[in-house]
Design a binder for these strands. Sequence first.
DNA 1: CTTGCACTTTACCGACCGGTCAACTAGTGT
DNA 2: ACACTAGTTGACCGGTCGGTAAAGTGCAAG
Lengths: 213, 213
Amino acid sequence: MEATTPNDTRNASREALLQAARELIVGRSYTSVGIAEICAQAGVRKGSLYHFFPGKEALTLAMLETLYADFEREVLIPGLAGANGLRARIDAFVHAIHAFEARMQTESGQLPGCPFGNLAVEMGTHNPTLRQAIRKHLDAVTAHFRSVLDEAVQDGELPPQTDTGAAAEQWLALMEGILVMAKADQDPATILRLGPALGALLLNPTPEVRHER
Amino acid sequence: MEATTPNDTRNASREALLQAARELIVGRSYTSVGIAEICAQAGVRKGSLYHFFPGKEALTLAMLETLYADFEREVLIPGLAGANGLRARIDAFVHAIHAFEARMQTESGQLPGCPFGNLAVEMGTHNPTLRQAIRKHLDAVTAHFRSVLDEAVQDGELPPQTDTGAAAEQWLALMEGILVMAKADQDPATILRLGPALGALLLNPTPEVRHER
DNA sequence: CTTGCACTTTACCGACCGGTCAACTAGTGT
DNA sequence: ACACTAGTTGACCGGTCGGTAAAGTGCAAG
């Protein structure tokens, strides 16, 4: 078991760099965090960073992969599959996000908002590589939302003709907007105050779907 | 008429700086645009900038004031007061935003999203001054939304017990989220695809408002 | 003519940016 | 004992960042 184990004590520097990059970039932003700061927090010299990653962008891309994997495992799957009924699942999801943002604020003093949405806003106009990676992760989140909505259709909670793909996209859009507002407020209460809008948006018959193609 | 006129040919440099800062910061982001670039685009030397403004932050604050004033005059007031009926007004607003984003993309090659939301995301965690200024402008937008919703209540389009303040905040949140998604896609069609969600959110009875305090 | 002031110009500052490089260390397989 | 290699280290690079200082320009009032 030496070539099969993915992470030995080797790569300890690599893991530390990914962890430091996550904490700093999620807590602030891509451009406001420098290579030097990431290395300092990781306890690794700058040259080692460039041994494991071609540069800052590649480090960020790898960090986003681990970030999404953890988010899927710790929030998306337990939060969306746990409760019974669509409304309860939406509420559980909102509270999970609220708990994350509130914890980040007490730990680092800042309410970060959505790490993916933040990066999409910050780099979307001038870094196509990062933008497309973020777009991929957002699509993955949308797919989780859609499976929850499909289940609600099967259980009769939503009408059979519901366009669950479109509704899942709207779910993500509203969630991103809620997190933008919460970040502008720097107040996690904004998430709870705006959270019920998700139920209003997703649990209503959406009378106009004649957008047939 | 020499002290009363607000802008003579004096202050031409000041106006040029505000205009350049708007084009560059709205088109990209705050941190990615430097003082030197703003001065170059304005045709003004760096020292002159520091004659009119204490620094980059103050220049940005003044730019945001003029940006909001123009947005209110050119989009908010004509777009929201023009059409008859809530649904038509929402649609007109969505199409006005879509037209703006599409024009920006053809002119500068980039779809910028919401300038205020972008800045809130980029600087919200580490520049309280900018954050509070943005928060003020977002509140002003919300107030416009609310007056439209109040009018809809008076016209019987919405039930009398509607919490128009909360609904206006949800309107803004969803609009911001739609623009985040459009920026991640770099495609103005996303605005039109997600736009109908605004109608679904605002034109439904919103059964649970028992969030009394 | 001279003084004062708003504005401009240019040179310059220290700090920091992402990234490079060559030398070095330690562990492994032969 | 040896060579090879993954990993580490610290010095260094040119460029850019926001901001400063001081000299200079032109115009208007006294």
